[in-house]
């Protein structure tokens, strides 16, 4: 077993971890602002992938080119889902909230199966095809681009929350809904914004993933379990926490599978998760 092989595995783990982080950011944002777990988040990702796919299939547009459009589309979709469904359950018991988003998940998945058939599809050529060679190491260019996209998106969301008035208002609503409302912040608008941004993040992730991953109605379920782990591991509502947790989980999963047995790679990830929440229930970067 050479150093090169180990290094390659480590870096591949970081790359996939960044993609995980991108999926988790939207989820943690919605949770942070509203305390609602969006079980349909994986389906937002799936819609993002299909949006990229249809753009490619009908108009020969590359997923990378249509990425801003996919993000906008998903932003609008997130807002609509909020206005139609989520708005009615913001103050409902937690069980109703879980049922609502869980129901959405099943609805979206069923809809995708009905409209687009359960077949596997994929974008078979893209401008980011190819690979990056670093000495003896090599990486798929789509993965590198997806990872870079994850870094940029995380930075953008983080900067938005930190440096803009709107972002500050969002954070204020997250911290204390009533107090923020007294300061003249329209909570409903902030919630809609959180769903919009959350869904847009999933859209970006979907567009980037479409360049290197097969697209099918259940694709969301593959990524969503890891995303939930990241949200809890990084600290509920913490965008930066989800980002670092993504890298950590990616490395543990890929390195663990390589050094030990691939059958146990999720065992390692979930053990890590249990350990962290045992000793630090608020997660790595969450507020106690």
């Amino acid at each position: 077993m050479t150093v090169e092989l180990l290094l390659q595995t480590l870096l591949s783990g970081i790359l996939i971890g960044l993609v995980y982080a991108l999926v988790a950011i939207g989820l943690t944002l919605i949770f942070g602002v509203m305390d609602i777990v969006n079980f349909a988040h994986g389906e937002f990702l799936m819609f993002g992938m299909y949006a990229a796919f249809w753009g490619f299939a009908f108009w020969k547009l590359d997923p990378i080119v249509t990425l801003p459009l996919t993000a906008l589309l998903l932003f609008a979709f997130g807002v609509v889902v909020y206005k139609l469904v989520i708005r009615r359950i913001t103050d409902a018991p937690m069980l109703s909230q879980i049922f609502a988003t869980f129901g959405l998940m099943i609805l979206f998945r069923g809809l995708a199966q009905y409209l687009w058939k359960p077949d596997f599809r994929s974008v078979d050529h893209t401008i980011v095809a190819g690979k990056v060679v670093l000495g003896g190491l090599q990486f798929g260019l789509p993965q590198v681009v997806a990872a870079a996209g994850a870094v940029v998106t995380t930075a953008a969301v983080w900067a938005f929350l930190r440096y803009t008035r709107l972002g500050a208002a969002l954070e204020a609503t997250a911290a204390d809904k009533e107090a923020a409302a007294l300061m003249g912040i329209d909570a409903q608008r902030m919630f809609a914004l959180a769903w919009g941004i959350g869904a847009a993040c999933a859209g970006v992730a979907g567009a980037l993933l479409a360049t290197c991953y097969p697209i099918f109605p259940e694709v969301g379920s593959t990524f969503i379990l890891v995303a939930f782990v990241l949200v809890a591991l990084g600290g509920f509502g913490s965008v930066v926490g989800a980002f670092w947790a993504g890298i950590l989980v990616g490395v543990v999963e890929v390195m663990g599978g390589f050094l030990w047995d691939p059958a146990y790679k999720m065992v390692l990830v979930l053990s890590l998760y249990l350990l962290v929440v045992w000793f630090r229930p608020q997660g790595l970067m969450g507020k106690a």
Partner: peptide, 20 residues
């Protein structure tokens, strides 16, 4: 002999094992 759990997000560890 690598037995992997199906429908995962990545097969990097598996392929690296094969490569090694």
């Amino acid at each position: 002999k690598v037995l992997y759990p199906p429908k995962g997000t990545q097969l990097t560890s598996e392929v690296q094992k094969l490569k090694a």
